[in-house]
């Protein structure tokens, strides 16, 4: 296989990974629709989900375009199996209570905002344009989630206990966000992608400052759990996909 083909395959996998992260978390957040603690929070979570699904659509459409294999964004979203999804484990984790959802959002949006910020310099001009659009949205997400971490962490005894639990639950999935795999290495070389490891320091700084403001400690170190970006998922993803994919799979090509 010549080098151009290898690079193109890595390029497609890279975009699918980024798109899956956004799509899966968008789907997770949509589960809150009608169930959030207040109507304002309900609107906020639905809006975050909407932004993420929009970003996922743009990224998967671009992946399909590069792949040039007859699939479009919908085919990638609705007609792939669990093992073909390349999202990180963090985004597929169940919502838990509101505190756990906001802890997950705080970690992911903070990371994603740094990631998109760096990707605005991508040598892939379409990816750079998507990132420049999305980074304005994720800054808003990260700010909202950060405020909830502080409000719950520095709130009542009960809200504080729940936020500590939420941060603990999600913490073991954080290392995966900053590991460069073979796809990342190929993308760094072509300057399409960015070095994830370099995002760790600014991420840790924001987390440390925010938790200090919330009067919370950093979660204890767990053995990191990784593998989502290689298609090795937790049991939760299959259940999410069953809900997300069942209509397009049961009624292929249905239109409304």
């Amino acid at each position: 296989m010549d080098n151009a083909v290898i690079v193109r395959e890595a390029h497609v996998a890279y975009l699918i990974g980024l798109g899956d992260d956004a799509l899966i978390l968008g789907q997770r957040l949509s589960e809150w629709c009608g169930h959030a603690p207040s109507v304002e929070v309900d609107l906020s979570l639905a809006n975050l989900g909407l932004d993420l699904i929009g970003q996922g659509t743009l990224l998967l459409a671009h992946a399909a375009e590069i792949e040039n294999g007859g699939r479009d964004a919908d085919a990638l979203a609705f007609h792939r199996d669990e093992l073909d999804f390349l999202n990180c484990l963090l985004v597929e984790q169940p919502n838990g209570d509101f505190a756990r959802t906001m802890a997950r959002q705080f970690f992911f949006s903070t990371f994603q905002n740094l990631l998109y910020g760096a990707l605005t310099a991508s040598s892939d001009s379409e990816l750079a344009a998507i990132a420049a659009k999305a980074v304005k949205e994720t800054e808003y997400h990260a700010g909202l989630a950060r405020e909830w971490v502080i409000r719950l962490g520095d709130g009542t005894e009960e809200s504080r206990r729940r936020m500590i639990d939420g941060l603990e639950w999600n913490w073991r999935f954080i290392d995966e966000l900053f590991v460069n795999d073979a796809v990342d290495e190929a993308m760094i070389e072509t300057r399409i992608g960015i070095d994830r490891a370099k995002l760790r320091e600014p991420f840790d700084l924001i987390v440390a400052q925010s938790l200090a403001e919330a009067r919370l400690d950093l979660p204890a170190q767990h053995r990191p759990v990784t593998g989502g970006r290689q298609g090795k998922h937790s049991e939760h993803l299959g259940h999410l996909l069953a809900v997300m994919q069942h209509i397009p799979r049961s009624f292929p090509d249905a239109r409304w």
Binding site: L50, D51, L52, G54, Q55, T57, L58, I130, K133, A134
Partner: peptide, 8 residues
């Protein structure tokens, strides 16, 4: 141009 990525 879209206002937001996910603007329906």
């Amino acid at each position: 141009t879209p206002t937001y990525s996910g603007c329906p």
